[in-house]
Design a protein around this nucleic acid. Structure first.
Length: 415
RNA sequence: GCCAGGGUGGGGUAGCUGGUUAUCCUAGGGGACUGUGGAUCCCCCGACCCGGGUUCGAGUCUCGGCCCUGGCCCCA
């Protein structure tokens, strides 16, 4: 038997309902911030991603050559494609651009909890704004989307300038190594690495910076920096907005194009892969041939949010089972159409079995049953049954539809 | 790429010191039941991941592969 490719998943209707529900809540959050959706191709020129992330990532990508010999790859992330879109198509649009996206990405990695080879990202990019308020807006949108989903998580906000100022003397390779160790809180390794560089003196202040939880603590370690005023303003804005977060200057965020503010969010019960959002201010457009444009964005690991949420309660939609004998088949189709037109879910019974058997099935899957046999068809009425209460009435079709519209559905114990 | 634990009907499982027709639950189909409820009863359907080895005989032991789950690495 054919198998689904490794690291991919199939989604059945119940799970899709839950995913669509959460997607819709995030989408609505973005809309309320004035963000519009963009969509880019599922594959791009390979170079787009190596320009952003370095040649080393080719191994982790679904890279391939097409029949014309072009080096392409399924997208492993969406920030680079969206910025490529901006450079290609949208350079002259009035700034700032407020865009969001929800699409699938592909990485050739070893699957584990919350990590799949095809996964979905919900994210946003704010392009062409370079103020503390722009930074704040992006963090607040990320939080709004996650809050709307209902996931419980911890938000950490930081700024790269502080750590970089402490490491300003180191060459790039050493700086990367040190930042990587700090990101993982590997202080023993850090001390050893600094010793190898002859800079043991940095260890205390670096460890203190990672532990710092206030701006005053952090800037006491670094001294005054040009970024200080904007960072202080950002914190003031986030606090005024009532955001629940902590400051953390140990956030590294991998790559060099992040320029200032950075943030990450972590959820519980996710095992080793517990980061559900990451973002920050960056400059990327110039890599793709555009002007050097300040941008800020984030990406939410949608599948991880779904794992962290567990069961998602989707508002029930009343279902009408339309049951009929052969004499009532035509009337049943008409009745189903009337319920559908009223916004209900109407399911015809296709079994051709007796009404008793049809009702047995309906009782498990529906909230209401409409029965149309020879008697009802002849009289031009329907038998309308509320499956929760057991009450049955003989009504004109319009009256039966009216019985269901706007009515709350009780606990779906009948399902 | 590395490590650990796993793969038995669609889902969940028993069998694991090798031995007749592989257990049970559930789901699915049919019937009792051709106009009224989820019950009950009966019947049916349907599985040992793949390949090699040991053996008279392998779901069971052994080797390799594939896949799953989680962890390491990585995490744009």
């Amino acid at each position: 038997m054919l198998q689904r490719p490794r690291g991919t998943r199939d989604f059945l209707p119940d799970e899709m309902e839950a995913r669509r529900e959460i997607e819709e809540r995030m989408r609505e959050a973005a809309r309320r911030f004035g963000y519009g959706q963009v969509r880019t191709p599922v594959f791009e020129e390979l170079e787009l991603f190596t320009l952003r992330s370095g040649p080393g990532i080719v191994n982790e990508m679904y890279a391939f050559e097409d029949k014309g010999g072009r080096a392409l790859s399924l997208r492993p992330e969406l920030t680079a494609p969206v910025l490529r879109l901006y450079v290609n198509e949208a350079r002259v649009l009035p700034k700032p651009l407020r865009w969001f996206y929800y699409d699938d990405c592909f990485r050739y990695e070893r699957p584990q909890k919350g990590r799949y080879r095809q996964f979905w990202q919900f994210g946003a990019e704010l392009i062409g704004a370079d103020t503390a308020m722009a930074d704040a807006e992006v963090v607040l949108l990320a939080d709004a989307a996650l809050q709307a989903s209902g996931v419980e998580y911890e938000l950490k906000v930081g700024h790269l300038a502080l750590m970089r100022s402490l490491l300003a003397d180191l060459d790039e390779g050493a700086r990367r190594a040190v930042m990587g160790l700090l990101d993982k809180r590997e202080f023993d390794g850090l001390v050893a690495a600094l010793a190898g560089l002859g800079r043991e003196d940095l260890a205390p202040s670096l460890e203190a910076l990672v532990a710092a939880t206030t701006l005053d603590e952090a800037f006491a370690l670094t001294g005054p920096l040009p970024e200080e005023a904007r960072l202080r303003e950002l914190v003031t804005l986030l606090d005024a907005a009532g955001l629940d977060y902590t400051l953390n200057f140990g956030i590294v965020r991998g790559l060099d194009y992040y320029t200032g503010m950075v943030f990450e969010g972590f959820a519980q019960n996710l095992g080793a892969e517990n980061q559900i959002v990451g973002g920050g201010a960056y400059r990327l457009a110039h890599l793709f041939g555009g002007e050097d444009t300040p941008s800020c964005g984030f990406a939410i690991g949608f599948d991880r949010v779904m794992v962290a949420l567990g069961q998602v309660e989707v508002p029930p939609r009343p279902t009408v089972a339309v049951l009929s004998t052969s004499e009532g088949a035509c009337a049943a189709c008409v009745a189903a159409a009337a319920f559908r037109a009223a916004g209900l879910r109407a399911e015809l019974d296709l079994s051709g079995r007796g009404l008793g058997a049809q009702l047995t099935r309906a009782a498990r899957t529906a909230d209401y049953a409409v029965l149309i046999g020879a008697r009802e068809a002849e009289a031009g009425v329907v038998a309308f049954k509320d499956l929760a209460s057991g009450v049955q009435e003989t009504l004109a079709l319009e009256a039966a539809v009216a019985r269901t519209v706007g009515r709350e559905v009780d606990a779906p114990g009948a399902r």
